[in-house]
Every structure is written in structure tokens, then in C-alpha cells.
């Protein structure tokens, strides 16, 4: 396998981890975010600083990056997710910009706008694959559990959810914390992949892109989010030679999907036997117990 193919595969999986994080929050819990680049930045910078300045091994550094992103997500979520609505979307824009500005101005720690070069390239294909498989397994398990059902209840009708006994603010904060953890881990792996990070990588454009791939793939479908991010990553990568038209094609793909399939590529379906049965018009037998079809 050439270095280039390997690089694309790694990038696909890193973006996949981030997309699953956003999907959990936006697709399954119904909370829009326009600032998830903040958690990506926190993961990246934590990993870079801990490995370079403190000589920490990359594995605990990545995990600590994810954990710090999770803690920040939790703290931001507590006041902003009390009420349902678009408060968090607005707050997340502010959060992302603040985090970016802090990184840009905290020269002594983050090296400011010049960025941090020379990060160990620990993100190899097997490492990324391992992270991806474990985290994808966790995400799919979660959405097929009592917690996933609670998230979906909060998304579909938060009044009904609280009158079915769910403490909806608590579930929303939980969803955001897990989401931030996923994105933070993706950020850490990303730092180890390109070995040079700077604040401008984590701007508003990155945040919107992270949310749009999930909408593109289908809100409420984990495999849709993965499919969406795969297509968008490939489009942006494969058209690199004609880079002046790259963003044009990217925009065109998004517009076409939203026009012809506003619910996203997969809607709320997951790729799997249930989708296949749905396509050929057969409902699963009622004996199926532990997993409802999607």
C-alpha cells in the first residue's frame, strides 16, 4: 500500500471518529453544534503539548486530550443545555472562537499562531484502525441501548421524554460529553498524523464542515455519518490536483444531496440486515428481541 493510500485511510478513520461524535449529539440527541472544531483543537493541542513539552507517551496524551475535551464539553453543556432549543448552537460558535483565540494568544504554551511543529507521527494505520474499531463499536452499542433510546426521546419530543421520566438536561449533557470525547480523540490522532498543528486549522469552516458531513450522511444514522464523512473526505482529497475547484465540487455535492435527499444519504437507517429487509419490503420477525430494526 502506498503512503498516499495509507494516509487517506488514516484520515478517513480520524474523520470517521469525529463524525460519530457529532452524529451522537446532532443526529441522535437533536442538538446542533457549530463549534465542534473547539474539541478537535483541545484534543490536538493537549496531545501535542503533552508529548513535546512533557515527554509523555502518545497514548495517554491522546486519551487525556479526549478527556479534557469531554470535561470542557460538560462544563459548557451544564448551563447551555438546560433548555431545549438552539442555545447550544449559538454558544458553541462562541466557544469555538474563544478556544481558537486562547490558543492563538497563549504564546508560552501553544506557540500562538505559528503553531506547533514536529509532533511525533505516532498515528499509524494499525493504531488508527484500533481506535476506530473500538470507538465505532462503542458508538453503535450506545445507540442500541437504553441510553440511545433516551437520547432519541430527547431529540424527538423533549416534553414527552421528561414525562416519561427522563431528566432531559442530564441526557443532553451526557451526549455532549461523549461527543466531545470522540472529537477530542480524533483531534489527538490528527495531531499525530500531520505532525504540525496551528490554530487556523480549527476555525469556523472546520466546525461547519464537521456538522455538514453528518447532515449530509443522515441525521440519526451512525453509518450515515460515516458514509457522509467518507464521501466528503474523498471528494476533497481526490480533487486535490484541481484544488482551485475543490471547494466548488464539495459545495455542489452538499447542495445536490440536500435538494434530492433532504433527510441525508441514509436518513435514519443504518447499513445492515434491517435496511436490507426494508429495501426488499419485509419486516423482521417479531422474535427478534434484543435489537429493534432501524
Amino acid at each position: 500500500m502506498s503512503n498516499y493510500t495509507e494516509g487517506i485511510l488514516i484520515l478517513l478513520m480520524i474523520n470517521g471518529i469525529a463524525a460519530m461524535g457529532v452524529s451522537l449529539l446532532t443526529g441522535f440527541t437533536g442538538i446542533f453544534t457549530l463549534g465542534h472544531a473547539a474539541y478537535l483543537a483541545i484534543g490536538s493541542y493537549t496531545t501535542a503539548i503533552l508529548t513535546l513539552d512533557y515527554g509523555l507517551h502518545w497514548l495517554p496524551a491522546v486519551l487525556l486530550g479526549g478527556t479534557l475535551a469531554m470535561i470542557i464539553g460538560y462544563l459548557v453543556g451544564l448551563p447551555t443545555l438546560k433548555l431545549m432549543g438552539d442555545y447550544y448552537a449559538i454558544a458553541s460558535i462562541g466557544l469555538a472562537e474563544s478556544i481558537r483565540l486562547i490558543i492563538e494568544n497563549w504564546q508560552s504554551v501553544t506557540n500562538g499562531a505559528r503553531g506547533i511543529p514536529g509532533i511525533d507521527t505516532f498515528t499509524t494505520l494499525p493504531t488508527t484502525a484500533l481506535f476506530f474499531v473500538v470507538m465505532a463499536y462503542g458508538a453503535f452499542c450506545l445507540i442500541n441501548s437504553r441510553i440511545g433510546r433516551a437520547f432519541k426521546a430527547c431529540r424527538d419530543d423533549h416534553v414527552a421524554a421528561s414525562l416519561l421520566g427522563f431528566n432531559t438536561p442530564r441526557y443532553r449533557v451526557l451526549s455532549l460529553s461523549i461527543s466531545a470525547f470522540y472529537v477530542g480523540i480524533a483531534g489527538g490522532l490528527y495531531a499525530g498524523f500531520i505532525s504540525f498543528i496551528q490554530p487556523v486549522m480549527f476555525d469556523m469552516l472546520k466546525s461547519t464542515e464537521m456538522t455538514s458531513v453528518v447532515v449530509f450522511g443522515g441525521l440519526g444514522s451512525m453509518s450515515g455519518a460515516l458514509l457522509g464523512t467518507t464521501i466528503i473526505t474523498l471528494v476533497t482529497e481526490l480533487f486535490r490536483p484541481i484544488s482551485q475547484y475543490r471547494m466548488l465540487i464539495y459545495g455542489l455535492v452538499l447542495v445536490l444531496v440536500m435538494v434530492f435527499r433532504p433527510e441525508g444519504l441514509l436518513g435514519r437507517h443504518e447499513v445492515g440486515p434491517a435496511l436490507f429487509r426494508q429495501l426488499i419490503g419485509r419486516h423482521p420477525a417479531p422474535q427478534r428481541e434484543e435489537r429493534g430494526p432501524h
Partner: peptide, 28 residues
């Protein structure tokens, strides 16, 4: 106030789960 796009069974399961809990890590 049903969860319209979830299945009929899932609607009931969502309410049913309070009495049959398992931990977050078991869900994960």
C-alpha cells in the same frame, strides 16, 4: 406525543427501561 419515527415497540421500550437498568459502561 409519540416518537413518530421510532417503531411502536421502541416507543414502549423507551418507557419500560426505567425498571430494568444497566450501567453506562454496559450500554457502551
Amino acid at each position: 406525543r409519540l416518537f413518530h419515527r421510532s417503531t411502536v415497540l421502541e416507543n414502549v421500550m423507551t418507557a419500560c427501561q426505567h425498571h430494568h437498568r444497566y450501567s453506562f459502561f454496559e450500554a457502551l
